[in-house]
Write a protein that binds this DNA or RNA. Structure first.
Lengths: 227, 227
DNA sequence: GGGGCTAAGATTGCATCCAGTCATCGCGAT
DNA sequence: ATCGCGATGACTGGATGCAATCTTAGCCCC
């Protein structure tokens, strides 16, 4: 086959594997790769202009992250979560994100807090679901950006990743309006952080996540295989 | 080269990669592969009777777990933790293990609780550090064995893995005696679980981990590169 | 008509091989 | 003598090829 693949002469950044992993991660987050969808190595390889070896390494990485389910000699599938499993992830977040905030908060600058305010405002204005989710994620990640942690930051990011698809399904379902309480909570988080009340902010974050978990649980139809 | 490598005719169990990962994990846990030690792909490959490809997949997996640090085009090293980073892991455990216990406790049988009691007693009797650590781990893992979780169980196991080496260094240092409080706490955990007081047991576990974290912090010399 | 078996095709898993990158050592210049 | 620089060697990252396995489609039998 004419796999010309005129790669920039020798782009050996030594990270085709990382690039593929990031690409798959992104495709799953955007819903392009839906839960339960089978991932064939050759397809992925072609899509990202690589051979199957780095693809396999990427899949291994994503499996450990929980995004992909691997079965020996059979193949890889995008992980599908039950409602119960999704609640487990949210409960885990309820415990970890307040802790992460404790690491981060002391190092947040006034500028960062301003940016968070701006994101909160932009969220209230947007009508687009995808944009809403993007801003929401950026808001929270920004609040954690001060913490230089070994694994806690990555861990929380992974938990967000595994549930991203269901968050989108939910948000699409309930519409971005009637989410006034989300904006209030976001503003409250920024306010308490400005006051230096880390404990209060952490408490609000915990409640924020718990409330979202309960909202999700009220819509179990999101988790029934679309068939 | 005479790489005869007379493998059992055709052992395609489809899991050389898993076997290698498990092997490395174990070698690190046993201290055979010490923190900071470089891991050369070819050596590992030969050691486990495989080629470099499954070794690379295994290393990727272990990197995601936090046990190994990979640098592009350079190599792999056994991850080394600072005291601060080790405390982060312990703080994470303080938040997650009580939650995991909530998942597990309702499904623990009387037999399992008896086994835990037995393990606690055996710990009090042993003089051997390695045996002490093995029993301790088994005690706690048994207490979590009732929970059928998606990721929480694996997560906790990984956190134990990344700190195993430092736990051993500490235990070797302070000796297994004078650990009376550990045994008391273990017995208290089993007792509260028998009473069906999950919240109480979870609280004790949290305190148990926090106390251990503080004990570790009192011995920063464990974390100075042995040189 | 439905369930189980069989054979061909598709797909994964691994070993070998090659290209690119990094580290180390020796040499020459200042 | 020390520092900078270039070459050699070792190692990693990636591509291709082959054997083993799984999936699937078709057929037979019930």
């Amino acid at each position: 086959m004419s796999t010309v693949k005129h790669l920039p002469p020798a782009t050996r950044d030594g990270s085709a594997s990382r690039r593929v992993a990031a690409g798959i991660r992104d495709s799953i987050a955007r819903g392009e790769f839906a839960p339960g969808m089978r991932l064939r190595q050759e397809e992925i390889a072609e899509r990202f202009g690589a051979s199957r070896v780095p693809v396999r390494e990427a899949l291994k990485e994503l499996e450990t992250e929980g995004l992909v389910t691997l079965v020996a000699n059979a193949g890889a599938w995008v992980s599908r979560l039950t409602l119960r499993e999704c609640e487990e992830v949210y409960q885990t977040r309820e415990r970890l994100e307040p802790l992460l905030l404790h690491y981060s908060a002391p190092h947040l600058t006034a500028d960062t807090l301003d940016s968070m305010d701006e994101l909160a405002r932009a969220m209230a204005d947007t009508e687009d679901v995808v944009e809403f989710l993007r801003l929401d994620r950026e808001f929270h990640m920004l609040s954690y950006s001060g913490g230089e942690t070994l694994m806690l930051g990555d861990l929380v990011r992974r938990l967000w990743n595994t549930t991203q698809q269901y968050r989108r399904a939910y948000t699409t379902l309930v519409d971005v309006h009637g989410q006034r309480i989300v904006h209030d909570e976001h503003r409250h988080i920024v306010a308490t952080l400005r006051d230096g009340d880390v404990e209060g902010a952490a408490h609000t974050v915990e409640g924020h996540i718990r409330r979202t978990r309960r909202m999700l649980a009220a819509h179990p139809e999101i988790f029934t295989p679309t068939g």
